[in-house]
């Protein structure tokens, strides 16, 4: 049996991550579960949220630290490269600050349910503000998309270069392709 010399720990893969965001019940957990090689795990994490309004007297944003459940999955792309996926709840009342999670992320996928488009504004604003490459993915619940994509783009008011796609959160190939849309967009921006 081959033994590594003592004190030489197993060499870890290069970790990369993507963030799956969106409003309540849009299919974030389903998306992570469809592609993850492990059953999706839930991690408690703290986020620092800044309330959308400001305190009238001091004009300082109201900061609160909230514990949230983070969906978490991974895909071993090869023995030296591992993709982590983090599903993050979006709370519309807060301009959320996922800085800690999003730092170094390859990109974000914002999932929308066309019946409740405004639930995803916080995530769209966040990725735009942080200048993180992202795509908007309409989860076609039961194959139905109630609006055409042009209307969705207009309603979300995302820049023309932000990719917009339709996917099925329950289908691994569909989730894979949605993630690829984000990555191709990120690659184009990185000058690849």
């Amino acid at each position: 049996m081959a033994r590594l010399p003592d004190d030489v720990p197993a060499r870890p893969p290069l970790p990369v991550k993507m963030v799956i965001a969106g409003g309540f019940g849009v299919g974030k957990t389903t998306t992570v579960a469809s592609i993850s090689e492990i059953a999706p795990l839930t991690t408690e994490a703290s986020i620092t949220s800044v309330a959308a309004g400001v305190d009238d007297l001091t004009h300082t944003p109201q900061k609160t630290t909230t514990t949230v459940a983070l969906d978490f999955g991974c895909v071993t792309l090869d023995p030296t490269l591992k993709l982590y996926l983090f599903g993050t709840p979006g709370q519309e009342r807060f301009g959320f600050m996922w800085d800690d999670l999003v730092e170094g992320a390859l990109g974000g996928l914002v999932i929308v349910d066309t019946r409740r488009l405004d639930d995803c504004y916080a995530a769209v604003d966040y990725f735009e503000h942080r200048d993180i490459p992202f795509a908007v993915a309409v989860n076609a619940f039961d194959g139905q998309v109630e609006h055409d994509l042009g209307d969705v783009r207009w309603a979300l008011d995302v820049r023309d270069n932000v990719p917009l796609t339709v996917f099925d959160a329950r289908e691994r190939g569909s989730v894979r392709d949605a993630l690829l849309v984000v990555l191709e967009h990120a690659l184009a921006r990185a000058g690849g």
Partner: peptide, 17 residues
């Protein structure tokens, strides 16, 4: 870009269901 390309290639090889 080289990391992104590796991730893209790796993900493309993930089979659908």
């Amino acid at each position: 870009a080289s990391v992104l390309r590796r991730v893209i290639d790796g993900l493309r090889a993930v089979p659908d269901s």
